[in-house]
Design a protein around this nucleic acid. Structure first.
Lengths: 149, 149
DNA sequence: TTAACTGCAAAGCCTTTGCTCGTGA
DNA sequence: TCACGAGCAAAGGCTTTGCAGTTAA
């Protein structure tokens, strides 16, 4: 019996004493349909199409609430991590490679990530909930171009 | 024949058309002797002990220059990545676990990291230079305390 | 000489916070 | 009813940038 993301979100928020508002429902819906990651600003702009009065602080507050409730997870993606992105809590093994020359971002995945999470957990006795990884370097094309210089 | 970090830094900067200033020499020396990671502000305060006139923008500019030249690498450490830390380019397998409850930061290491870097490289054909990882969750003590609630 | 660097001050950028009004339960 | 959430505006915190004077090469 699977619960929709929206239901999970509502439950998690209510469980922590929070309330369900129209703005939050909009955000739950958007998050449920987001392909991969989304940052606060992009989410805000999508939400604004449905409710032009929604505010950026509301988006941030809702994202933080959902993050605290472990319904979504935050990661950094871009070359410089300059902005957080959020993701529904599944497919935690996907992370990103950013080419430092052309800036292209490639999603990558590896079974080693789960292995790493487990190893890490037993190493320090902690409960490793989030494992944020960002890889950087030269992509195949840029490597060729640089060696051709 | 090993080169000191200071020499590497000087060479890399000169190779890219940069100049060696007294401020930069101070920073090279400090970086060479830093145990693990250091953030811009901490480096700035150390440098200020040697030259009270050194400025934070100079520290940032030098760090960025060294990062561009691959002499140092930048990573994020704290729970929210709110600040970059820099590290001399070795011991790349060390990363950090931050407890989201007490905020304690534990350095961890794993052979899987190198494995992951290689797997990643062959997966996308890229040259994976940096692999920044940040783990988060509950540390052993906090886990006990939370379950005892 | 002259392009690069420095220090200062200010701007940028993302995110959070204070405050007052509104509203879900 | 009333504590929690929304919007607005402003503050925070780290990092970068514009500018005019200075300096390495």
């Amino acid at each position: 019996m699977t619960m929709t993301f929206q239901q999970q979100a509502r439950d998690a928020i209510r469980d922590s004493g929070g309330r369900i508002t129209p703005q939050r429902e909009i955000l739950f819906d958007l998050l449920a349909h987001v392909e991969n990651d989304i940052d606060a600003d992009a989410l805000f702009r999508l939400a604004a199409q449905q409710d032009p009065n929604i505010s950026l602080p509301t988006v941030y507050r809702t994202l933080n609430t959902l993050e605290d409730a472990d319904v979504i997870a935050a990661q950094y993606v871009s070359t410089d991590h300059e902005r957080k992105v959020y993701r529904v809590n599944n497919r935690k093994n996907v992370f990103h490679f950013t080419c430092r020359r052309c800036g292209m971002v490639t999603p990558v995945t590896s079974k080693l990530v789960d292995q790493l999470r487990r190893e890490l957990g037993s190493q320090i006795g902690a409960d490793v909930v989030t494992l944020c990884m960002c890889a950087g370097g030269l992509c195949e094309d840029c490597r060729k171009e640089e060696s051709g210089l």
